[in-house]
Amino acid sequence: MQIFVKTLTGKTITLEVEPSDTIENVKAKIQDKEGIPPDQQRLIFAGKQLEDGRTLSDYNIQKESTLHLVLR
């Protein structure tokens, strides 16, 4: 499924993921596309910060959901 990741600069990254993918996994995909190390990434969905060990389905993230990427 496709999800979108919006950065603070207003750029939107499109990722191909599975509901069973972990947040860690998603961060690795963002690193592949954008070169941002996962340890600098914070992903936010519905106002919650997403934890590395959880999966997209844990957070009920469905196709075409938009996550927000904050760098630390």
Results as ranks from 00 to 15, higher is better:
M1G: 06
M1K: 10
M1H: 03
M1Q: 05
Q2K: 12
I3M: 09
I3R: 00
I3T: 01
F4H: 09
F4D: 01
V5H: 00
V5T: 03
K6E: 14
K6Q: 11
K6I: 07
T7C: 02
T7W: 07
L8T: 11
T9L: 14
G10T: 14
G10M: 05
G10F: 02
K11C: 03
K11V: 06
T12W: 13
T12Y: 09
T12M: 12
I13L: 12
I13C: 01
I13Y: 11
I13H: 14
I13Q: 05
I13P: 00
L15A: 03
L15E: 00
L15C: 02
V17W: 04
V17K: 00
E18C: 03
E18Y: 12
P19A: 12
P19L: 14
P19V: 09
P19F: 14
S20N: 13
S20P: 10
D21L: 10
D21N: 10
D21C: 02
D21R: 05
T22Q: 10
T22C: 02
T22W: 15
T22E: 09
I23Q: 04
I23M: 06
I23N: 01
E24K: 05
E24H: 12
E24R: 07
N25R: 07
N25H: 06
V26I: 12
V26T: 05
V26Q: 00
V26L: 05
V26D: 00
K27Q: 11
K27F: 13
K27L: 13
A28R: 09
A28Q: 12
A28H: 14
A28V: 11
K29I: 06
K29H: 04
I30Y: 07
I30E: 00
I30R: 00
Q31S: 11
Q31Y: 12
Q31F: 08
D32P: 11
D32I: 13
D32K: 13
K33Y: 12
K33P: 10
K33F: 13
E34M: 05
E34I: 05
G35A: 14
G35T: 08
I36G: 08
I36D: 10
I36M: 08
I36P: 15
P37V: 12
P38A: 08
P38F: 15
D39G: 07
D39V: 04
Q40E: 12
Q40N: 10
Q40G: 14
Q40Y: 07
Q40D: 04
Q41I: 05
R42Y: 12
R42N: 14
R42G: 15
R42P: 01
L43D: 00
L43G: 00
L43V: 06
L43H: 01
I44C: 03
I44A: 11
I44W: 12
I44F: 13
F45Y: 11
F45S: 10
F45E: 03
F45N: 06
F45Q: 15
A46S: 10
A46L: 06
G47W: 04
K48Y: 07
K48M: 09
Q49F: 07
Q49Y: 09
L50D: 00
L50T: 04
L50K: 00
E51N: 10
E51M: 03
D52C: 02
D52W: 05
D52Q: 02
D52S: 13
D52A: 06
G53Y: 12
R54W: 07
R54C: 02
T55L: 11
S57C: 02
S57H: 10
S57Y: 08
D58Q: 10
Y59H: 03
Y59W: 06
Y59I: 03
N60R: 08
N60Q: 15
N60L: 14
N60V: 04
N60Y: 07
N60I: 07
N60P: 07
I61S: 01
I61L: 07
I61C: 01
Q62G: 04
Q62R: 05
Q62S: 15
Q62W: 14
K63A: 04
K63S: 15
E64Y: 08
E64D: 11
E64W: 05
E64A: 06
E64L: 04
S65Q: 13
S65I: 04
L67N: 01
L67D: 01
H68A: 14
H68P: 01
H68M: 08
H68K: 14
H68Q: 14
H68V: 05
H68S: 13
H68G: 12
L69N: 01
L69S: 02
V70M: 09
V70E: 13
V70D: 08
V70K: 08
L71D: 15
L71V: 04
R72P: 13
